[in-house]
Design a protein around this nucleic acid. Structure first.
Length: 823
DNA sequence: CCCAAGTGCCCACTT
DNA sequence: GGCACTTGGG
């Protein structure tokens, strides 16, 4: 950062925004006793410290949310700050909601007016206010990754960029990375190697992309942050408005901030007036000019834990937190190490695992609640087996009195949820998939939203193009191009060109269709866009949406369809209308723009509290910040965690370890680590190996119900089975299995099947080199008799396609299916 | 311009 | 094993 050398920055100083009639009284920094009661000394310090910069290094479960909320509450209660002077940034909307709630619990209505939101939401608020300053309108659209991908795809095609090896995905990710670094097409071009044709084309696409966004009056996700930074840098007086307003800035999950977010925080914590033209006018006339507040930077509190940094893939820069003290000389650092969440066994496992990351500040979580249960390990034969174990164990926990809502199942990749779901449905276990809500990504929902955007932001050509032929109106690519050309010739927007269908030189039928579409959008606009001065009734968004869907024929087309899926699509649209109604209830003055903002930014909105009574399923990333009595960490396999793709990336395996660490530390009382020996991927069965992270857990902490060695073993390897407590010998590799990771394919039939007394023993087997041919009859333990149709794959992956007499066709992995040849 | 059938590619994580 | 995109015939 640049010089943060506020003249006044000693600890007790109080922000000095004193309005004429209201404002906090300076000089009070008493913190009410109840706000520090029950806090340990470092927590207390983190709540009461008053200085310009505070870093709270908060280990997992160390009560950081409590500290943050109490800190905010104390600032408000002592009147050191008004709510409107507080900006608290959280990582998710959900976390923001919870924080607001908890502050309100502490101090009631006084909390109203705080900005507690994500980076993205905060930036949208700022950008909507200031959009006119730099060529946008406050009705701008927010493009999600799908939207920008569609746009980039078109541009890549136009530039024939794929000829240079530039795929849309690669271009998108490169642009995103650059924006997170605050680079734009021009600045990138200046330092790019422009003799490389691929670079030249990329720069062109990047530039076109940005111009297209501008023309569409739209920002992509990354722009929301970056453009706010540009705005502040280009318009110091605008920046000063927010610098004067936000006197206390608090940032949660600071380890996951990227450079743009870091820069934004720095812009906001610069002393106001430092780089502004002195606003003239004789002095004293400015709203915010009550004080010699010039030169007084806002106070900054950041909370984070570098061991939980898991978003490097989207530009998170761990240095933001590790170099905080250098960025903010004189910063206070408070370390929270006492854990109030988990048992010592869980913490010891977590400490042991994360200790393998080099280049980290030593930090050891501890608790005084005692050792607790051992961690339970289980190796399933397949992912279904593994899921069955999870389901059975959950049922047992539930029978023992644990509520479903206190149980969570984590996995590395979203695709792993399928097997779990299948088993859970069969077991009638109530579950809910958190995050990963694809609701707003469904085609019909995106279509409906595009209709709304066509009304709210007619400049957004992408949205209008999207609905042009939905439902089918006979308007294809040719017609769309004609419209675009006409719009360009006449210097009007694509949307306005629809009003002049007769001038397009298209057939009468298509003309009529265009005119009809234009009329529907116009009618909805009349309804939904409040005339100046008027405030539309809150129901107007839901009504307008309904109108658009009905009058456009969209709903009718789905109703008339014979595709059974279209019924579900209709239901989804009904749900969207219901969301709009709910939105109106919560935001009586909410406009269609506000509604679109919410659905664009709140992807996981649905999981606020309706997970009650259900087991929660989610990715490890989604799990961050949450906690459960019992946690199942599934798919603990090489290539999954650490993920295959991470292996080649610098810092990849370390980040994967942190992810694993995050998963472990979510558990309060019980932790289960499970894996499968085989896993179906891309419709093909592959052999899995135990994750290297498993051997980083001290053997005495982990009790294997069924170890990889148990499933895998045959004579001679058992003693080296992974941390095997069941194994008779622990000699040799000391429980390590580093050289014992050969896929089970090469195993021979083994002795000692009787040892698998715990679960599904009949399925744990190895058929060795059973030779099968099409036409052979076999008997399966569960499916009965059947006949082999075909065989595919080789070796351990050899698959038999079998038609069973009783249950029909099935695919079986020959190597290990519980089958025998008959006849 | 629309549809059905075929093929290629893919599945990291998210605001 | 599933989706997105292409292709060829109405």
């Amino acid at each position: 950062m640049t010089d943060a050398s506020p003249a006044a920055s000693d600890a007790a100083s109080v922000p000095l925004i004193v309005g004429a009639d209201h404002g906090p009284r300076p000089g009070e920094s008493r913190v009410d006793a109840d706000l520090v009661e029950g806090l340990n000394p470092p927590q207390r310090e983190a709540v009461t410290y008053r200085g310009k910069a505070l870093l709270i290094v908060a280990g997992a479960g160390s009560g950081k949310t409590r500290v943050l909320t109490h800190r905010i509450a104390s600032l408000l209660r002592t009147r050191e700050a008004w709510p409107s002077q507080i900006l608290a940034i959280t990582f998710t909307n959900k976390a923001a909601g919870e924080m607001r709630e908890r502050v309100e619990q502490l101090i009631g209505d006084r909390a109203r007016g705080m900005w507690i939101s994500t980076f993205h939401s905060a930036c949208v608020r700022i950008l909507r206010r200031e959009a006119e300053q730099f060529g946008f309108t406050r009705a701008f659209t927010i493009y999600d990754s799908g939207d920008s991908r569609a746009l980039i795809k078109r541009l890549v095609k136009e530039h024939e960029a794929d000829a240079f090896g530039l795929t849309p995905a690669a271009v998108q990710s490169k642009i995103s990375k650059l924006k997170n670094e605050l680079a734009d097409a021009e600045s990138y071009a200046r330092q790019a190697n422009m003799s490389d044709p691929a670079e030249r084309v990329f720069v062109e696409v990047f530039g076109d992309y940005q111009r297209a966004l501008q023309r569409a009056n739209a920002f992509d996700f990354d722009d929301l942050i970056a453009q706010t930074v540009y705005l502040f840098r280009a318009f110091p007086t605008v920046a000063d408005v927010y610098r004067r307003r936000f006197r206390h800035i608090l940032v949660d999950e600071y380890q996951d901030t990227n450079h743009a977010q870091y820069a934004l925080i720095h812009e906001l914590t610069r002393p106001p007036g430092a780089d502004a033209e002195p606003v003239d006018g004789g002095g004293g006339m400015m709203i915010w000019d009550a004080e010699p507040a010039e030169g007084d930077a806002a106070s900054l509190t950041v909370v984070g834990d570098s061991d939980q940094s898991i978003y490097a893939f989207r530009g998170a820069d761990i240095r933001n937190i590790s170099e905080f003290e250098r960025d903010f000389p004189g910063a206070k650092v408070v370390l929270l190490e006492q854990n109030y969440r988990s048992t010592q066994n869980i913490l010891s496992a977590a400490n042991a695992v994360i200790g393998n990351n080099f280049d980290r500040k030593e930090k050891k979580l501890w608790t005084d609640v005692g050792a607790g249960e051992q961690i339970v390990g289980f190796t399933g034969y397949s992912q279904h087996d593994e899921a069955q174990f999870v389901a059975d164990e959950i049922e047992r926990l539930h029978r023992d009195g644990l509520d479903y809502s206190q149980i969570a199942v984590f996995y590395r990749t979203n695709s792993q949820s399928r097997a779990l779901e299948e088993i859970f449905i069969r077991a009638a276990l109530p579950y809910k998939i958190m995050g990963g809500t694809k609701f707003y990504e469904r085609a019909e929902i995106k279509d409906a939203l595009a209709y709304l955007i066509a009304v709210a932001n007619p400049a957004d050509e992408m949205a209008v193009r999207r609905i042009l032929n939905k439902p089918r109106r006979g308007i294809g690519e040719v017609t769309a191009t004609a419209i675009a050309r006409y719009a360009a010739d006449e210097q009007i927007t694509f949307r306005d060109a629809l009003a002049n269908a007769s001038a397009l030189g298209v057939g009468p039928k298509i003309q009529a269709a265009i005119t009809q579409l234009d009329a529907v959008i116009a009618e909805a606009s009349d309804l939904m866009l409040p005339r100046s001065g008027e405030i539309a009734p809150p129901t107007v968004v839901a009504e307008g949406l309904q109108l658009l869907l009905n009058r456009s024929g969209y709903s009718d087309a789905l109703r008339a369809s014979r595709d059974p899926q279209d019924e579900a699509r209709l239901e989804n649209l009904d749900e969207l209308v219901a969301v709009a109604r709910e939105f109106a209830r919560n935001n009586p003055e909410g406009t269609v723009i506000d509604f679109l903002t919410e659905v664009a930014l709140v992807a996981d909105a649905d999981d606020l509290d309706d997970a009650s009574g259900s087991v929660s399923l989610m990715t490890l990333h989604t799990a961050k910040g949450l906690e459960y009595d019992a946690v199942f960490l599934t798919g603990v396999e090489e290539d999954l965690i650490p993920h295959r793709i991470s292996a080649g990336e610098p810092g990849g395996p370390q980040e994967e370890r942190r992810l694993f660490y995050v998963g472990i530390t979510r558990a309060r009382k019980r932790l289960y680590l499970s894996l499968a020996m085989t896993r179906a991927q891309f419709g093909e069965v592959t052999v899995a190996m135990p994750s290297r992270f498993l051997q980083e857990i001290p053997a005495e902490l982990l009790h294997w119900r069924q170890s990889p060695g148990d499933v895998n073993s045959r004579g001679g390897t058992r003693s080296r089975a992974l941390n095997s407590r069941g194994g008779s010998s622990r000699g040799g590799g000391g429980g390590r299995y580093g050289d014992d990771l050969a896929p089970l394919g090469r195993r021979e039939p083994k002795a000692g099947l009787e040892k698998f007394t715990n679960r599904i023993p009949s399925k744990v087997r190895d058929n060795g080199d059973m030779v099968l041919a099409p036409g052979d009859r076999i008997r399966h333990d569960d499916f009965g008799e059947g006949r082999i149709d075909t065989l595919t794959g080789e070796g351990a992956k050899r698959v038999a396609h079998v038609r069973f007499d009783a249950v029909g066709p099935k695919k079986l992995l020959v190597k290990i299916a519980p089958i025998e040849k008959i006849g």
